[in-house]
Design a protein around this nucleic acid. Structure first.
Lengths: 116, 116
DNA sequence: TAGCTATGTCGTATATTTGCGACATAGCTC
DNA sequence: GAGCTATGTCGCAAATATACGACATAGCTA
Protein backbone atom coordinates (compact mmCIF):
# COMPACT_ATOMS: atom_id res chain seq x y z
CA UNK A 1 0.00 0.00 0.00
CA UNK A 2 3.00 2.23 -0.06
CA UNK A 3 1.53 4.68 2.36
CA UNK A 4 -1.57 2.86 3.40
CA UNK A 5 -3.97 5.73 3.35
CA UNK A 6 -6.48 3.58 5.11
CA UNK A 7 -6.79 6.23 7.80
CA UNK A 8 -8.74 8.32 5.35
CA UNK A 9 -11.56 5.81 5.16
CA UNK A 10 -14.26 5.01 7.68
CA UNK A 11 -13.84 2.31 10.29
CA UNK A 12 -16.59 0.31 8.62
CA UNK A 13 -14.89 0.41 5.28
CA UNK A 14 -11.59 -0.59 6.78
CA UNK A 15 -13.10 -3.44 8.76
CA UNK A 16 -14.96 -4.80 5.77
CA UNK A 17 -11.84 -4.53 3.65
CA UNK A 18 -9.79 -6.31 6.30
CA UNK A 19 -12.10 -9.28 6.42
CA UNK A 20 -12.51 -9.31 2.66
CA UNK A 21 -8.76 -9.46 2.38
CA UNK A 22 -8.73 -12.50 4.61
CA UNK A 23 -11.09 -14.20 2.19
CA UNK A 24 -9.21 -12.92 -0.84
CA UNK A 25 -7.23 -16.11 -1.32
CA UNK A 26 -8.70 -19.48 -2.30
CA UNK A 27 -6.50 -21.24 0.23
CA UNK A 28 -8.00 -19.27 3.10
CA UNK A 29 -11.51 -19.84 1.82
CA UNK A 30 -10.70 -23.52 1.61
CA UNK A 31 -9.33 -23.54 5.15
CA UNK A 32 -12.49 -22.02 6.56
CA UNK A 33 -14.67 -24.45 4.63
CA UNK A 34 -12.50 -27.30 5.83
CA UNK A 35 -12.84 -26.23 9.44
CA UNK A 36 -16.57 -25.84 8.93
CA UNK A 37 -17.03 -29.27 7.40
CA UNK A 38 -15.22 -31.11 10.16
CA UNK A 39 -17.19 -29.85 13.10
CA UNK A 40 -14.34 -31.07 15.19
CA UNK A 41 -11.19 -29.04 15.01
CA UNK A 42 -8.36 -30.54 13.04
CA UNK A 43 -4.72 -29.69 13.27
CA UNK A 44 -1.92 -29.60 10.74
CA UNK A 45 -3.93 -32.05 8.69
CA UNK A 46 -5.13 -28.87 7.08
CA UNK A 47 -1.79 -28.61 5.39
CA UNK A 48 -2.12 -32.13 4.05
CA UNK A 49 -5.48 -31.32 2.53
CA UNK A 50 -4.25 -28.32 0.61
CA UNK A 51 -1.98 -28.27 -2.41
CA UNK A 52 0.46 -25.99 -0.67
CA UNK A 53 3.49 -26.49 1.48
CA UNK A 54 3.05 -26.76 5.22
CA UNK A 55 4.83 -23.46 5.72
CA UNK A 56 2.52 -21.62 3.35
CA UNK A 57 -0.58 -23.09 4.92
CA UNK A 58 0.69 -22.12 8.31
CA UNK A 59 1.14 -18.60 7.05
CA UNK A 60 -2.47 -18.48 5.89
CA UNK A 61 -3.59 -19.84 9.25
CA UNK A 62 -1.69 -17.05 10.94
CA UNK A 63 -3.44 -14.44 8.85
CA UNK A 64 -6.84 -15.85 9.74
CA UNK A 65 -5.82 -16.06 13.37
CA UNK A 66 -4.59 -12.48 13.33
CA UNK A 67 -8.14 -11.42 12.54
CA UNK A 68 -9.43 -13.83 15.17
CA UNK A 69 -11.53 -15.61 12.57
CA UNK A 70 -10.03 -18.87 13.71
CA UNK A 71 -8.41 -20.02 16.91
CA UNK A 72 -5.80 -22.58 17.71
CA UNK A 73 -5.65 -24.68 20.84
CA UNK A 74 -2.59 -26.64 21.75
CA UNK A 75 -3.43 -30.20 22.62
CA UNK A 76 -0.22 -31.93 23.51
CA UNK A 77 1.74 -32.43 20.38
CA UNK A 78 -0.93 -31.29 17.97
CA UNK A 79 -2.78 -28.03 17.60
CA UNK A 80 -6.46 -27.78 16.88
CA UNK A 81 -7.74 -24.90 14.82
CA UNK A 82 -11.35 -23.98 14.83
CA UNK A 83 -13.67 -21.28 13.60
CA UNK A 84 -14.69 -18.35 15.71
CA UNK A 85 -18.33 -18.69 14.79
CA UNK A 86 -19.34 -15.74 16.92
CA UNK A 87 -17.10 -13.37 15.04
CA UNK A 88 -18.06 -14.97 11.75
CA UNK A 89 -21.68 -14.25 12.49
CA UNK A 90 -20.85 -10.60 13.10
CA UNK A 91 -18.85 -10.45 9.91
CA UNK A 92 -21.70 -12.02 8.02
CA UNK A 93 -23.98 -9.26 9.23
CA UNK A 94 -21.51 -6.63 8.07
CA UNK A 95 -21.35 -8.16 4.63
CA UNK A 96 -25.10 -8.54 4.48
CA UNK A 97 -25.57 -4.90 5.38
CA UNK A 98 -23.04 -3.85 2.79
CA UNK A 99 -24.55 -5.91 0.01
CA UNK A 100 -28.06 -4.86 0.93
CA UNK A 101 -27.01 -1.26 0.67
CA UNK A 102 -25.29 -1.93 -2.64
CA UNK A 103 -28.11 -3.85 -4.23
CA UNK A 104 -30.93 -1.64 -3.03
CA UNK A 105 -30.09 1.21 -5.34
CA UNK A 106 -31.57 1.17 -8.80
CA UNK A 107 -29.31 -0.37 -11.35
CA UNK A 108 -27.76 1.85 -13.97
CA UNK A 109 -30.72 1.79 -16.26
CA UNK A 110 -30.43 2.01 -20.03
CA UNK A 111 -31.50 5.61 -20.40
CA UNK A 112 -31.70 7.07 -16.91
CA UNK A 113 -27.96 6.73 -16.74
CA UNK A 114 -26.53 10.03 -15.70
CA UNK A 115 -28.12 12.91 -13.90
CA UNK A 116 -25.84 15.46 -15.46
CA UNK B 1 1.03 -15.12 -6.22
CA UNK B 2 4.29 -16.35 -7.57
CA UNK B 3 2.80 -19.40 -9.21
CA UNK B 4 -0.85 -18.80 -8.57
CA UNK B 5 -1.81 -22.32 -7.67
CA UNK B 6 -5.41 -21.28 -7.86
CA UNK B 7 -6.06 -24.13 -10.26
CA UNK B 8 -5.84 -26.48 -7.33
CA UNK B 9 -8.90 -24.98 -5.66
CA UNK B 10 -12.55 -25.31 -6.56
CA UNK B 11 -14.28 -22.84 -8.82
CA UNK B 12 -16.42 -21.71 -5.92
CA UNK B 13 -13.43 -20.98 -3.76
CA UNK B 14 -11.73 -19.08 -6.54
CA UNK B 15 -14.82 -17.06 -7.36
CA UNK B 16 -15.39 -16.12 -3.74
CA UNK B 17 -11.75 -15.18 -3.36
CA UNK B 18 -11.85 -13.07 -6.50
CA UNK B 19 -14.79 -11.02 -5.28
CA UNK B 20 -13.37 -10.81 -1.78
CA UNK B 21 -10.21 -9.42 -3.26
CA UNK B 22 -12.21 -6.74 -5.01
CA UNK B 23 -13.56 -5.70 -1.61
CA UNK B 24 -10.19 -6.05 0.06
CA UNK B 25 -9.40 -2.37 -0.17
CA UNK B 26 -11.22 0.42 1.65
CA UNK B 27 -11.15 2.57 -1.45
CA UNK B 28 -13.07 -0.01 -3.44
CA UNK B 29 -15.57 -0.49 -0.63
CA UNK B 30 -15.98 3.28 -0.52
CA UNK B 31 -16.50 3.44 -4.27
CA UNK B 32 -19.28 0.88 -4.16
CA UNK B 33 -20.94 2.64 -1.24
CA UNK B 34 -20.63 5.92 -3.07
CA UNK B 35 -22.26 4.53 -6.18
CA UNK B 36 -24.97 3.00 -4.03
CA UNK B 37 -25.72 6.20 -2.17
CA UNK B 38 -26.12 8.30 -5.27
CA UNK B 39 -28.73 6.25 -7.05
CA UNK B 40 -27.73 8.15 -10.10
CA UNK B 41 -24.39 7.26 -11.57
CA UNK B 42 -21.65 9.75 -11.07
CA UNK B 43 -18.48 10.14 -13.05
CA UNK B 44 -14.97 11.10 -12.17
CA UNK B 45 -16.41 12.95 -9.22
CA UNK B 46 -15.64 9.70 -7.50
CA UNK B 47 -12.01 10.66 -7.59
CA UNK B 48 -12.79 13.98 -5.95
CA UNK B 49 -14.61 12.23 -3.11
CA UNK B 50 -11.74 9.95 -2.26
CA UNK B 51 -8.43 10.87 -0.65
CA UNK B 52 -6.50 9.38 -3.53
CA UNK B 53 -5.17 10.65 -6.78
CA UNK B 54 -7.35 10.45 -9.85
CA UNK B 55 -5.06 7.86 -11.39
CA UNK B 56 -5.28 5.60 -8.38
CA UNK B 57 -9.03 5.87 -8.18
CA UNK B 58 -9.26 5.09 -11.86
CA UNK B 59 -7.19 2.01 -11.23
CA UNK B 60 -9.58 0.83 -8.54
CA UNK B 61 -12.49 1.47 -10.86
CA UNK B 62 -10.81 -0.67 -13.49
CA UNK B 63 -10.45 -3.53 -11.03
CA UNK B 64 -14.11 -3.39 -10.12
CA UNK B 65 -15.03 -3.14 -13.77
CA UNK B 66 -12.85 -6.13 -14.62
CA UNK B 67 -15.07 -8.20 -12.35
CA UNK B 68 -18.13 -6.56 -13.86
CA UNK B 69 -19.22 -5.35 -10.45
CA UNK B 70 -19.55 -1.86 -11.87
CA UNK B 71 -20.05 -0.53 -15.36
CA UNK B 72 -19.09 2.66 -17.07
CA UNK B 73 -21.11 4.45 -19.72
CA UNK B 74 -19.64 7.20 -21.77
CA UNK B 75 -21.85 10.26 -21.86
CA UNK B 76 -20.15 12.82 -24.02
CA UNK B 77 -17.21 14.17 -22.12
CA UNK B 78 -17.95 12.44 -18.85
CA UNK B 79 -18.28 8.80 -17.93
CA UNK B 80 -20.92 7.45 -15.60
CA UNK B 81 -20.09 4.49 -13.43
CA UNK B 82 -22.81 2.45 -11.83
CA UNK B 83 -23.27 -0.75 -9.87
CA UNK B 84 -24.16 -4.03 -11.52
CA UNK B 85 -26.84 -4.80 -8.96
CA UNK B 86 -27.73 -8.10 -10.60
CA UNK B 87 -24.24 -9.45 -10.20
CA UNK B 88 -24.00 -7.98 -6.72
CA UNK B 89 -27.09 -9.90 -5.75
CA UNK B 90 -25.53 -13.12 -6.99
CA UNK B 91 -22.35 -12.36 -5.12
CA UNK B 92 -24.33 -11.64 -2.00
CA UNK B 93 -25.86 -15.09 -2.22
CA UNK B 94 -22.44 -16.67 -2.57
CA UNK B 95 -21.22 -14.89 0.52
CA UNK B 96 -24.34 -15.72 2.43
CA UNK B 97 -23.99 -19.39 1.56
CA UNK B 98 -20.35 -19.34 2.57
CA UNK B 99 -20.97 -17.66 5.90
CA UNK B 100 -23.95 -19.84 6.64
CA UNK B 101 -21.80 -22.88 6.09
CA UNK B 102 -19.06 -21.42 8.25
CA UNK B 103 -21.27 -20.38 11.14
CA UNK B 104 -23.44 -23.47 11.22
CA UNK B 105 -20.78 -25.70 12.67
CA UNK B 106 -20.41 -25.82 16.39
CA UNK B 107 -17.85 -23.41 17.70
CA UNK B 108 -14.66 -24.76 19.09
CA UNK B 109 -16.05 -25.39 22.53
CA UNK B 110 -14.01 -25.02 25.69
CA UNK B 111 -13.47 -28.67 26.33
CA UNK B 112 -14.80 -30.53 23.33
CA UNK B 113 -12.00 -29.03 21.35
CA UNK B 114 -10.19 -31.80 19.59
CA UNK B 115 -11.36 -35.24 18.62
CA UNK B 116 -7.91 -36.70 18.86
C1' DT C 1 18.50 -39.78 26.80
C1' DA C 2 17.85 -40.56 21.82
C1' DG C 3 14.80 -40.46 18.19
C1' DC C 4 10.60 -39.28 16.07
C1' DT C 5 6.78 -36.33 14.92
C1' DA C 6 4.13 -32.01 14.98
C1' DT C 7 4.50 -27.12 15.08
C1' DG C 8 6.36 -22.89 14.59
C1' DT C 9 9.94 -19.30 12.91
C1' DC C 10 13.27 -17.11 9.62
C1' DG C 11 15.07 -15.68 5.55
C1' DT C 12 14.44 -15.23 0.78
C1' DA C 13 12.76 -15.11 -4.05
C1' DT C 14 9.16 -13.75 -6.98
C1' DA C 15 4.66 -11.79 -8.11
C1' DT C 16 1.12 -8.52 -7.23
C1' DT C 17 -0.85 -4.35 -5.33
C1' DT C 18 -0.93 0.40 -4.52
C1' DG C 19 -0.16 5.08 -5.54
C1' DC C 20 1.16 8.65 -8.45
C1' DG C 21 3.24 11.81 -11.96
C1' DA C 22 3.64 12.53 -16.82
C1' DC C 23 1.76 12.08 -21.07
C1' DA C 24 -2.10 10.73 -24.65
C1' DT C 25 -6.75 11.04 -26.18
C1' DA C 26 -11.33 12.85 -26.86
C1' DG C 27 -15.13 16.04 -26.64
C1' DC C 28 -16.79 20.63 -26.05
C1' DT C 29 -16.63 25.76 -26.76
C1' DC C 30 -15.16 29.93 -28.52
C1' DG D 1 -8.16 25.54 -35.06
C1' DA D 2 -6.89 26.97 -30.08
C1' DG D 3 -7.85 26.17 -25.49
C1' DC D 4 -10.01 23.79 -21.90
C1' DT D 5 -11.74 19.87 -19.31
C1' DA D 6 -12.57 14.95 -18.50
C1' DT D 7 -10.78 10.42 -19.20
C1' DG D 8 -7.70 7.07 -19.97
C1' DT D 9 -2.78 4.97 -20.44
C1' DC D 10 2.19 4.18 -19.24
C1' DG D 11 5.95 3.55 -16.51
C1' DC D 12 8.05 3.62 -12.08
C1' DA D 13 8.77 3.15 -6.93
C1' DA D 14 7.56 1.26 -2.71
C1' DA D 15 4.89 -1.93 -0.03
C1' DT D 16 2.59 -6.51 0.34
C1' DA D 17 1.43 -11.04 -0.56
C1' DT D 18 2.63 -15.70 -1.79
C1' DA D 19 5.32 -19.74 -1.54
C1' DC D 20 8.83 -22.51 0.23
C1' DG D 21 13.21 -24.56 2.10
C1' DA D 22 15.98 -24.75 6.15
C1' DC D 23 16.26 -24.56 10.82
C1' DA D 24 14.25 -24.26 15.86
C1' DT D 25 11.26 -25.91 19.39
C1' DA D 26 8.37 -28.99 21.96
C1' DG D 27 6.09 -33.22 23.25
C1' DC D 28 5.80 -38.11 23.06
C1' DT D 29 7.88 -42.79 23.32
C1' DA D 30 11.01 -46.46 23.51
Amino acid sequence: MTYAKTAAFTADQQQLARVAKALAHPARVAIIQLLASKHTCISGDIAAELPLSRTTVFQHLQELKALDLIRGEIDGLTVCYCLNTELLRQVQQQFTAFFTEATSGAACGPADACAF
